[in-house]
């Protein structure tokens, strides 16, 4: 009984003279490598060339604001519950009077952290969010360095 049917049966009989000469086998092997030598390389030279990512690509996380520029997140914690890698943590805070133009609801996330070493970019947080606050950009990777520009 085999798991896959791809395993090969090993022939342990004595090698014939042609096989013991190695040379035919070496020549065929070298023909294969030479064929690959002249093949077109599939490499994408990353910083200069970029691959088309597609509309459903899950990249850099952002917390969105609504049309009036107020933060949508209410620190409900559903994203943290949904996260399979347990990467999300947050600290909730209450909105003070006079801050209505900053936060849409009475509660907001004072600290919202995603541990990027744990995140697996599954997008479950985006699906779980009832306020459409967290979003994984489809056009941008997470920045490689520590930069927070833009």
């Amino acid at each position: 009984m085999q798991l896959t049917n791809r395993s090969k049966k090993i022939d342990k009989s004595e090698m014939s003279l042609a096989e013991r000469m190695y040379l035919p086998a070496i020549a065929s092997g070298m023909a294969i490598t030479l064929k690959h030598f002249f093949k077109k390389k599939p490499t994408i030279n990353y910083p200069e060339q970029k691959r088309y990512l597609g509309p459903v690509f899950r990249g850099h996380h952002i917390l969105k604001k609504d049309e009036a520029g107020r933060e949508r997140c209410t620190a409900c914690g559903l994203c943290a519950v949904a996260c399979p890698a347990e990467a999300i943590s947050m600290v909730a805070a209450e909105r003070k009077s006079g801050e209505e133009h900053l936060y849409r609801e009475e509660k907001y996330a004072a600290v919202y952290e995603i541990n990027m070493l744990r995140c697996i970019f599954c997008g479950f947080c985006e699906e779980a969010c009832p306020k459409q606050a967290i979003y994984l950009r489809h056009d941008e990777f997470v920045p490689v360095f520590m930069s927070r520009e833009r």
Partner: peptide, 17 residues
């Protein structure tokens, strides 16, 4: 010699062991 040996060797001998 190699060719003669390869010709004399029954092909079915490979892979049944």
């Amino acid at each position: 010699v190699a060719l003669v040996q390869a010709a004399l060797k029954p092909k079915a001998a490979r892979g049944i062991l």
